[in-house]
Structures are given as structure tokens and as C-alpha cells.
Design a protein around this nucleic acid. Structure first.
Lengths: 113, 113
DNA sequence: TGGTTATGTATAAGAATCTTATGTATATTT
DNA sequence: AAATATACATAAGATTCTTATACATAACCA
């Protein structure tokens, strides 16, 4: 994930948002999608991604479905019902986070009327 | 820091930005400032703050100056020259991070004019 | 006047998340 | 034939944080 530590803690939210948007995705597809959307700035490593997917599955937020395409295995993940509800919360937390960080970095735009 | 993991990795940037803005601050003051700006949403714990300050000092990004006020010790921190330069980088990284997260969460706002 | 809260700094144990390195396997491109 | 792309997986270690504890003074309240 580049060298910035800022992305720490945001991977779960990213995964869940992408699944909410795309229905179902497999791990490698997620890495490529993120790379594309961020124009190469954010590269999710497998060492971070797969454990994260397994944990979300263990928590009951994701369901998995294995397919074989071109003789290669794919594990498609999708949000469970519980996962869909939790995604709403995570996205809300992300909005709060971004708002708070902007308040800290971009203090009082000199509210002039 | 509330329960959200999203803030992980952002503490150094927050500290440095506040010091850039306010010249010099002491630990407790930083916690109160952050609490105020975020309206109580972000509470920096001492267990996170003090080790972070010590590390930034060890890296040569902060200078420390001890004062005694009302018979209580205060350690005022300020950015070194190197710290000022690094703050610019960190803030730039934060902007990239926020932009990338918004791209991921708020995909193509259906550009309608 | 005694107890709680606020001010102020500090560290240690453990949790959570990530990087880096490695491993396995097939398909495609050069 | 070799390198790259596709696809998943895990283990060791680094980093950052939470939680708990510790010490000390000042201020407020009952």
C-alpha cells in the first residue's frame, strides 16, 4: 500500500464498499479494481488482502463461493445480510473520519459572510 | 480514538499539522485541541500520544522544551526544520489518501451538468 | 476535609493491521 | 524457454494503537 501508513485500518471498509457495489468479487479482482480506481496509487498486497477476507468471512459479513475458471481457482466473495448492514455503518464511520481529518487539516475556513 | 480503526496511522500527521499551525504545544494540549476540533469524536489516548511524540522527537522532527507551570511539568514540542519539511509531505499524503478514499467510496458521481 | 475530577507525563502488555517474504499452481506473453 | 500475469495462501516481523497502570499537583464539590 505505497509507503503511507494512512491506509492502515481502511482495507475492510474498501473491501465491503466494493462488494456492495459489484455484488461479488474475487481477491485478485479486488486488488486490480483498487489499483485502477486510484490510478496505481493504492496497491493492496495479498498478505493484507487474504487474511482480511478470511476474517470478514469468519465474522459472518461475507459469504464465499468457489468457481473454477480457465482451470484456475477463484473464490468469489459477497456480502451477507449482516454484512450489508455493517457496510452502511462502516461507510458512515468513513465519512465521519474524513470530515474530522479535514477539520483538523483545513481549520476554520475563516467563515466570512 | 473512538472504536473506528480508520484513525490508525493518522496520529503523526495530526500532531505535525497542529504544531505547524500553533508553533508549540504540549501533549495534554494536543488531546484537548483535537477533542475540540472534532467535537468530541476523536479522543487521543495518552498511551498513543506520548510514544508518538517521543518517536517524532527521536526522528529529529520535533524539538522539546520543558517548562514548569503552576508547579506542574509541561513538555512543549515544536517542529524542527526537518519536521517542517516533512509536514508538507505528510499533508500531501493525507490529501492523496482522502482523495483516493473518496474515489473508492463515491465512484463516478454520474457527472451530470 | 475528603473525594472526585482535571491537569500533566509516562510505560508496559497485548491486540489489530499491515509489510515482506515465501510457497504453490496454471495461463499467457515474449 | 523464461518471464509475466493470474490466483490463492500463510508465517515472521514491524508498526500503531488500546487498555491498564503509575505518579504527581491543582481545582472543585459535598
Amino acid at each position: 500500500m505505497k509507503n503511507s501508513q494512512l491506509y492502515k485500518g481502511s482495507l475492510n471498509t474498501i473491501i465491503m464498499k466494493l462488494l456492495e457495489e459489484n455484488g461479488k468479487m474475487y481477491g485478485y479482482e479486488i486488488t486490480q479494481k483498487v489499483k485502477g480506481i486510484t490510478q496505481g496509487e493504492l496497491n493492496i498486497t495479498e498478505g493484507a488482502l487474504y487474511p482480511a477476507l478470511h476474517k470478514l468471512e469468519a465474522e459472518g459479513l461475507l459469504d464465499v463461493e468457489i468457481e473454477k475458471v480457465d482451470n484456475r481457482m477463484r473464490k468469489y466473495y459477497k456480502l451477507t445480510e449482516s454484512g450489508q448492514k455493517e457496510t452502511v455503518n462502516r461507510l458512515s464511520e468513513l465519512e465521519d473520519f474524513i470530515r474530522n481529518m479535514q477539520s483538523l487539516v483545513n481549520p476554520n475556513p475563516k467563515l466570512e459572510f
